[in-house]
Structures are given as C-alpha cells and as structure tokens.
C-alpha cells in the first residue's frame, strides 16, 4: 500500500512538471517550474540531472518515482 501511495503522489508531482502530459519531463519543463517553485533555473537543472539516472535528457515517471521514493525514505534496491 505504501508503494501505491508513493506511486500516486509521485504521479501527481510528475504531472505538475509535465504540464503537456508528454509522459516525460525535459530540462525545459523543469526550468518553467522556476515561476512556481522557489528555486533558480540552475537548481532546477541540478535536480533534473540528479533524477535523470541514465542521463538521456528525458525524465520518465519511473525515474521520478524512484527519486521521490528515496526522498521519502524508501531505499532503492541497489
């Protein structure tokens, strides 16, 4: 159930970033959040890089959820 809750909340937050519902987040999407969150474009870019595990420039819901799980204290397997 915890996993469900995590997925649900992560999806909700993911949608805040992915306003066009593309199914992924780009750095451009992140930087647009600068108007809504108290973070600088540089900080948003750093956040993006730390979440984008494979470094392909696209942040998927899976990567986002994993990062969010870590934030909430759900250790990842590896």
């Amino acid at each position: 159930e915890m996993q469900d809750m995590l997925t649900q909340k992560a999806t909700e937050l993911f949608m805040l970033c992915d306003k066009e519902e593309k199914g992924f987040i780009t750095k451009r999407d992140m930087q647009r959040l600068g108007g809504e969150l108290p973070l600088t474009p540089d900080q948003l870019e750093a956040v993006f890089d730390s979440l984008d595990d494979d470094g392909n420039g696209y942040l998927t819901l899976e990567e986002f959820t994993e990062g969010f799980g870590g934030f909430l204290g759900f250790g990842s397997e590896d």
């Binding site: 937050l13 805040l16 969150l37 973070l39 900080q43 890089d49």
Partner: peptide, 29 residues
Amino acid sequence: DSKAAASGSEGVLANFFNSLLSKKPATSP
C-alpha cells in the same frame, strides 16, 4: 481550474527538490 488545488503539491515538490539539492551538491565539472 485546478491551480489552487495543486498548491499543496507544489510545496511537496519544492521540498523534494530541495532535498535532492542538499544531497547532491551542484555540478562541478
């Protein structure tokens, strides 16, 4: 519109991002 409803989530998002920033220092190439 749903903007107001999302404000709580934005707070969570900001906390989440801040925690990532405190964990990983800014890039230093």
